[in-house]
Simulated scan of single mutants.
Amino acid sequence: MQSRNVNLEREDHLKITETNLTIMMEFVLLGFTDIPQFQWFLFGIFLVIYMIILLGNGVIILITRVDAILQTPMYFFLRNFSFLEICYVSITLPRMLMDLWTQKGTISLFTCATQMCFFLILGTTECFLLAVMAYDRCVAICDPLHYPLVMCPEVRIRLVVASWISAVPVQIGQTCQIFSLPFCGSNTINHFFCDIPPLLKLACGDIFVNEMVVYIFGILFVTVPFLLILGFYIRIISTILKLPANTGWTKAFSTCSSHITVVLLFYGSATVTYLKPKSNQHEGIDKMISLFYTILTPMVNPIIYSLRNKDVRKAMRKFLP
């Protein structure tokens, strides 16, 4: 009798385990289902935004590639940055559009992990590339005589390649660590894409180590590049202030203002998301903040760089009717 009870308990445990495994083979992205009456409206808005991002950044890539005036290191980095923005937003926005269109948010475990991994890699690449662009401006303004030598084609390519590949092994490892956690209970992700903070809320057991890893990588890949950018601009400002007022203050500041605006938009929203204390409150606000660095920043980048840059505006007038 006792043996039979043990066997029944084992069978029940296996059934429960199998059920949990079946559930956790996929997640459900809630997205913006809390406002169902606006689903089609949101689909239209985000579709227009995606087209603006593709068109705007595509134009930047085209004109910086073919226009003779824009064959300088600054526009080489800008071209790579625009390409990165297209890749970055394509990780999340097409999936969100599909979910809004189908009114379903189911996503497989593998697809969710793949989306998060590429999102982290490209997000880290953006942090590094923004730091490289700040370094480029620092050399151009503070050491203009050696600028062509310091930013020769070989150096530019190495800096860009390093920005793209430096975080790949680390972010693959972090993704594997997150998805090796046991997920139990709800499989509903209160977000519009697979990101670390909402996924950790679904994990069972002690996740203290995982949270510490997120903070450490956040400091390394967000805070450190930001401090480098800050250091470069402190040097730039100190150099500009030493110049006579009529020797190019306006031009020097104008070449940096676009980059500073993008840095503040991206780093401000990303820092709030990844370095703030964990909380189950105000999840709707967290989603809105995520929209800033996933969608808004890639959309406004071409606008910022074209409106504030005379050379870009001239090149655009040549190629656009």
Rank of each mutant, 00 (worst) to 15 (best):
E9M: 14
E9R: 10
R10G: 03
E26A: 03
F27E: 02
F32S: 11
W40F: 09
F46L: 13
I49G: 01
I52K: 04
I52D: 08
L55P: 01
V59F: 14
I63R: 06
R79H: 09
F83W: 12
L84S: 05
E85V: 00
S90H: 07
I91M: 12
T92N: 04
M98I: 15
W101M: 09
T102E: 04
K104A: 06
I107G: 01
L109H: 13
F110Y: 00
T111H: 10
C112L: 02
F118S: 01
F119D: 02
L122E: 06
L129I: 11
M133G: 02
A134T: 04
Y135S: 09
Y135A: 08
C138S: 09
A140R: 08
A140N: 08
I141K: 01
C152D: 05
I165C: 01
S166D: 04
P169M: 04
Q171H: 10
T175N: 04
P182R: 10
P182T: 11
C184D: 01
N187M: 06
N187T: 10
I189K: 04
H191D: 15
I196E: 04
L199T: 02
A203Y: 05
D206S: 09
E211T: 07
V213E: 05
V214Y: 05
V214K: 05
F217R: 06
L220Y: 09
V224R: 02
L230K: 03
Y233Q: 08
Y233A: 01
I240F: 03
L241W: 13
P244H: 03
W249I: 06
T250H: 12
K251L: 14
A252E: 12
T255H: 13
C256G: 08
S258D: 03
S258F: 03
H259G: 01
V262E: 04
L265T: 08
G268Y: 07
T271C: 10
V272Q: 06
T273V: 11
Y274T: 00
P277V: 02
K278S: 11
H282M: 13
E283L: 15
G284I: 04
I289G: 00
S290E: 13
L291G: 13
T294D: 04
M299K: 04
I303H: 01
L307G: 03
V312Q: 03
M316K: 05
M316V: 14
M316H: 05
